[in-house]
Design a protein around this nucleic acid. Structure first.
Lengths: 197, 197
DNA sequence: TCATTTGATATACGGTCCGTATGTGAAATA
DNA sequence: TATTTCACATACGGACCGTATATCAAATGA
């Protein structure tokens, strides 16, 4: 019987869930591992055994959120009508996802400071990956200018990211969101190859 | 005589200089205030009297770096030939400045995590401000599409920022820098109003 | 010039937190 | 049933931050 593994799995899930809440509410630095583990009836012993250290637990939380974002990005892409529309839709979806306080605090603010450049994360930043994939297709079909694939993907996701941070920091997010999306579309159109002549 | 004020100023400068080095080398969290102050022959007493707390000292460092960036941005803008060229030049300058490890670690990585959204910093993020200024001019002269001023400025600086992080994280920065700049120009051109018909 | 006050910095202290080393008890194993 | 394993708890050491208090040179005023 595998009761050991089962409860171990449960405990890991409990810890990640508690950590997700703590990191989102207080930020990485201010989140107390003692408090977090006690909240789910464990001690730091379980934490250090399962995740190595505080950063390890943080990385697990980032990975979880990133997976959820990837799932949503895939769904968005599936619904899109054509490659170019898909690129726009992915960017807009990224902007909207970044409005979630959890995503902002954990993935966008603390993430890079704690784990370094997103391209080196274990979760490999699914949203960037999705954009890169779509850009790759558009490059093949010569829909967009012959730019470096990674460069184009980075700039697009970077623009979307900053748009999201702006929207989130504004006084009336619901009001500026359309402006952000409009600007994103404009900027993205700069990649188009056509001088529709 | 104002000897008190004079040495106080000196001490502040010493502390900021030491902090700049420590924060750049180790990051905000790992920088020890004890060690930092001892390096310049002081104790934490001076630090807490002059800057309030660790974050206060960090904010002072960010402000100093930001001022230097603003100075450089102004010089770049002055040399540019025309408003549109100025916008491009500012963006490219931003990318290049972000290659400096000090700028990356302190302003781009730890800055947002420690101080929150750049738009609320005491230094008010001079590079973003410069871009906003230029965008404003271009909007008045109808050189670019009638977008929200703040949105356009944010997306542009966001794209430049991510481009810089990508270049910096790459294996051969000097090789990918031109690709990043090329992509930035493409994206920026999406803002242009002309359907050059 | 000298006594007094001010305040910039040093010193001392308490509390929190992290990472590790060691203990423990239930589950797996034979 | 005896033994081993190992996931987790407990205990410890050390670093660090922020504050409260002390100190001493510089400023002030007579």
């Amino acid at each position: 019987m595998a009761k050991r593994l089962e409860t171990m799995e449960e405990n890991r899930n409990k810890l990640v869930a508690a950590a997700r809440k703590a990191f989102a509410d207080r930020g990485f630095a201010a989140a107390s591992m003692d408090e977090l583990t006690a909240d789910v009836g464990l001690t730091r012993g379980a934490l250090y055994h399962n995740f190595g250290d505080k950063r390890g637990l943080f990385a697990a939380v980032v990975h979880q959120i990133d997976s959820e974002m990837a799932l949503r990005a895939k769904e968005i892409a599936r619904l899109a009508d054509g490659d170019w529309q898909r690129l726009l839709a992915e960017g807009e979806a990224y902007i909207e996802m970044a409005l979630d306080p959890e995503v902002q605090r954990i993935v966008l603010l603390d993430g890079p400071a704690v784990l370094g450049d997103p391209s080196k994360w274990p979760s490999q930043n699914s949203c960037l990956a999705a954009t890169r994939q779509t850009v790759s297709t558009l490059l093949e079909r010569k829909v967009i200018k012959p730019l470096d694939e990674e460069a184009a993907a980075r700039l697009l996701s970077g623009a979307a990211l900053n748009a999201a941070l702006w929207v989130a920091a504004s006084d009336s997010p619901k009001e500026v969101l359309p402006k952000a999306i409009e600007a994103f579309r404009a900027i993205a159109s700069g990649l188009l190859a056509v001088d529709q002549s």
